[in-house]
Deep mutational scan, measured.
Amino acid sequence: SELMNSSKLIRMLEEDGWRLVRVTGSAHHFKHPKKPGLVTVPHPKKDLPIGTVKSIQKSAGL
């Protein structure tokens, strides 16, 4: 199965306009000026399962 580095996923979010608002432990929480909701990324993780990545991307509207 495909894995993604959390840094790469965070870069994709930031390029889309998401900004880090809070860190709780290894959970990084992002908000967007125009899009609704809060997106949480486990970080640092070298090997996020593709299912997790897809669900984060979906929440972020990517």
Rank of each mutant, 00 (worst) to 15 (best):
S1Q: 14
S1L: 09
E2M: 07
E2V: 06
M4L: 08
M4T: 11
M4E: 06
N5Q: 14
N5R: 06
N5T: 12
S6Q: 02
S6W: 05
S7I: 10
K8H: 14
L9I: 11
I10W: 02
M12C: 08
L13P: 00
L13E: 00
E14T: 08
E14K: 09
E14A: 07
E14I: 11
E14H: 10
E15S: 08
E15M: 11
E15P: 00
E15Y: 08
D16I: 05
W18L: 00
W18M: 00
R19G: 07
R19D: 08
L20P: 06
L20Q: 06
V21N: 05
V21C: 08
R22A: 13
R22N: 11
R22S: 14
R22Y: 13
V23D: 07
T24S: 13
T24F: 08
T24M: 09
G25T: 13
S26G: 08
A27E: 15
A27F: 15
A27Q: 13
H28G: 04
H29N: 07
H29I: 15
H29S: 12
F30I: 00
F30G: 01
K31N: 08
K31E: 13
K31G: 07
P33Q: 09
P33M: 07
P33H: 09
P33L: 08
P33V: 06
K34W: 13
K35H: 04
P36M: 08
P36V: 08
P36F: 07
G37L: 04
L38K: 07
L38N: 08
L38R: 08
L38I: 15
T40I: 12
T40Y: 11
T40N: 06
T40S: 14
V41R: 00
V41F: 03
P42L: 06
P42H: 05
P42A: 05
P42C: 05
P44M: 04
P44F: 04
K45E: 10
K45F: 09
K45R: 13
K45L: 08
K46E: 15
K46P: 15
K46D: 15
D47N: 14
L48A: 02
L48I: 13
P49S: 13
I50M: 11
I50H: 10
I50Y: 08
G51Y: 09
G51K: 12
T52I: 15
T52W: 07
T52A: 08
V53G: 02
V53M: 04
V53D: 02
K54C: 13
K54F: 03
K54S: 10
K54G: 05
S55R: 12
S55G: 09
I56C: 02
I56G: 01
I56T: 02
I56S: 01
Q57M: 15
Q57K: 11
Q57D: 02
Q57C: 14
K58N: 11
S59H: 11
A60C: 03
A60K: 01
G61D: 07
G61Q: 08
G61F: 03
G61C: 06
G61T: 02
